[in-house]
Amino acid sequence: MPSLAMVSSCLLGMALALPALAADPPICADGAAPSPTMFAPRSIPAQKILDVSWFVWGICGLIFIVMAALMIWCIVKYRQKPGDDTEAPQVYGSNPIELAWTIIPTVIVFVLFLVSARTIFEIDHTSPPPDSLEITVVGHQWWWEFDYPEQGFVTANELHVPLTRDGKSVPIYLTLESNDVIHSFWVPQLAGKTDVVPNRINHLWLQPTMTGTYVGQCAEYCGTQHANMLITVVVHEEEDFNAWVANQQADAVNDPSVASGRNLFLQTSCINCHRIRGTVANGTFAPDLTHLMSRSVIGSGVVANTPENLSTWVYDPQIIKPGCRMPSMKLSPEEVKDVVSYLLTLK
């Protein structure tokens, strides 16, 4: 069956083309998110995972080539010749051959096991590595809360971390908790995923090697808007990170020119779920809005944080993120405008 052989060799070609994928994706200068590919690791654990993956792909690729070649050879060589309807010679088995193809896979598997086990123990830390920056990540349906206990503030949906502290590369040690159902924290360029499980505390460790913006998303199905539970991680130079921290630590700006919007916000039930530090808005069920405008996205990454999107969101979040937990507050267009102009001051 030459066509079968042809297709098989196409498959083989596809498999061999895999390394081409490993080429680094272009780094976008304008902050646009690149592909969250595991082939462009920007953090030590992600790099270790990629290294061991190449080893595994190599071995599996070799096995594939050998087996596929054997099959194609049998298919081509041992087709029944036209007109020949005699039976093939009956071979019932062969102990040495069968022993060989029991032992060789066993050896291969043993090597794979040892190599992978070493990487597991290198990556999987149950206690924070020395000097690490600790951040608590809380998964909510369908957004992320980031709690910086050391710096004393809470933010949402965009994780900011430094490349270095005091000039030294620093591990980031994430404590993962869930507020409701199971989520999974996955930013492929920085680390493998770890589930975020209610009533259970998990940990994840990353150590960025390059500044930039990295994207990922929730990887465990968690309900209606699982698809839009996106993650943005920004890795800063040390001084940029410190500036960002200083801004986050401050209370919200109180701009008298938007007092009407501010009052409206504080008088509606927005404050039951959202917190704006420095005001009576003290809710914890939804993202902290103290420095909303320091974030590049809203709705956990579903759209960019532009005044237009923000207006639509405040008018009715269900238009942008159907099924999300925030209801339409039934504000009139003027009220929406007022509230949004207030929100726009929350730098």
Binding site: M38, A46, K48, I49, V52, S53, V56, W57, C60, L112, S116, T119, I120, I123, S184, P188, A191, G192, K193, T194, A219, E220, Y221
Partner: peptide, 16 residues
């Protein structure tokens, strides 16, 4: 691909 997925570190990336 099953053998690849059994490799825990690779699985951390591509599980789910």
């Amino acid at each position: 691909t099953g053998v690849m997925l059994a490799t825990v570190p690779f699985d951390w990336q591509v599980s789910d």
